[in-house]
Amino acid sequence: MAASTPQVFSGITPAKYATLMEKANSAGVPMSGNTGRATKMGVEVEWNYSAEKQELVLTCHRTPFFVSVQDVNAKLHELVNQALQA
């Protein structure tokens, strides 16, 4: 499967990014640093955060056959937006 279209989130301050990282790690997704890839239950996601631009780019690279890329992207979008509103 090819990578999905990257999702770009603006207005991600360093504090909001730290909150997102905490949530990911507490959910069992090993996330550290400003760039990387993590896999959990067959879903592989790449992230790239720029503190200067206050921008987070998330790309879903792989899903198991029973989960669509669209479902993963929707969930990522929901989680980031929840963190931005907190």
Rank of each mutant, 00 (worst) to 15 (best):
A83G: 05
S68R: 05
L76E: 01
N48W: 09
E22L: 10
M1I: 03
P30F: 05
A27Q: 15
V67S: 07
A51V: 01
K75G: 14
C60A: 06
A15N: 14
S4T: 08
K16F: 05
E46A: 13
Q54V: 05
A15E: 15
M31V: 15
F9E: 03
G36M: 07
N48Y: 04
V67W: 02
N73F: 02
T63E: 03
C60E: 09
Y17L: 08
V67G: 09
S68V: 04
P30C: 00
T35R: 12
E44N: 03
V67C: 07
P14H: 01
G42A: 12
L56K: 07
T13I: 02
S50A: 04
A27E: 10
V72A: 08
S10I: 09
K40V: 00
L84R: 11
Q82A: 07
Q85P: 00
S32F: 15
P14E: 04
M1T: 01
K23R: 13
V57F: 04
L58M: 11
H77F: 12
A51Y: 02
V29W: 15
H77E: 12
G28R: 01
Y17W: 15
K53Y: 08
A2R: 07
T35F: 02
T5V: 12
A51F: 01
A2N: 04
N48G: 05
H61M: 10
G42F: 09
A38Q: 03
N73G: 07
V72H: 06
N73T: 09
G42C: 13
T5E: 11
E78L: 14
N73A: 07
M21W: 00
C60V: 09
M21S: 10
F66C: 03
T13M: 08
Q82Y: 07
E22Y: 10
V45I: 15
Q7E: 13
M31A: 15
T39V: 14
A3C: 04
G11V: 05
S4V: 04
M31D: 01
S26E: 13
K40Y: 03
L20H: 01
Q85K: 09
F9S: 02
A51G: 07
Q54M: 11
L79I: 10
P64V: 10
T39N: 04
G36N: 05
P6F: 06
T63S: 01
A38G: 08
F66T: 02
C60F: 01
T19W: 04
P14T: 02
S26R: 12
T59I: 05
V29G: 00
E46T: 13
K23D: 11
Q85F: 04
A83W: 10
